[in-house]
Design a protein around this nucleic acid. Structure first.
Length: 97
DNA sequence: ACGGTGACGAGAT
DNA sequence: TATCTCGCCACCG
């Protein structure tokens, strides 16, 4: 499902869980992405939390990595590190794609 | 079986 | 707005 997120768009953990048919399994989505290895082709960086912020902040070394990768795709962060969902939110697998 | 934990989310204060 | 509390699902000891 994460692989379906187009370039330059973002989705929330809750969205992914919802589209998968497990609307309350947002945490499990995070668990799955955390399990990915470094060379993965899954665009894990396009998944952020409901606040519009990256959740890797308090994790490890890769705090800025995710935001940097998103900026590479043209996504702009607020001065507070928040993404504007009105501009960048993925509408979902049935949202016209 | 039981309790703790985490890349989450929504409601209450 | 910031913080706290509870619910959720799956993994781990």
């Amino acid at each position: 499902m994460v692989a379906q997120i187009p370039y330059g768009k973002v989705a929330t953990y809750g969205q992914i869980a919802l589209y998968l048919g497990h609307p309350r399994a947002a945490r499990t989505v995070g668990w799955a992405l955390h399990a990915l290895r470094e060379g993965t082709e899954i665009p894990w960086h396009r998944v952020i939390n409901s606040q519009g912020r990256v959740s890797t902040s308090y994790l490890t070394h890769s705090a800025d990595l995710q935001s940097a990768m998103l900026e590479e795709e043209g996504i702009v962060f607020d001065e507070r590190g928040v993404v504007d969902f009105a501009l960048y939110r993925w509408e979902g697998p049935t949202g016209g794609g």
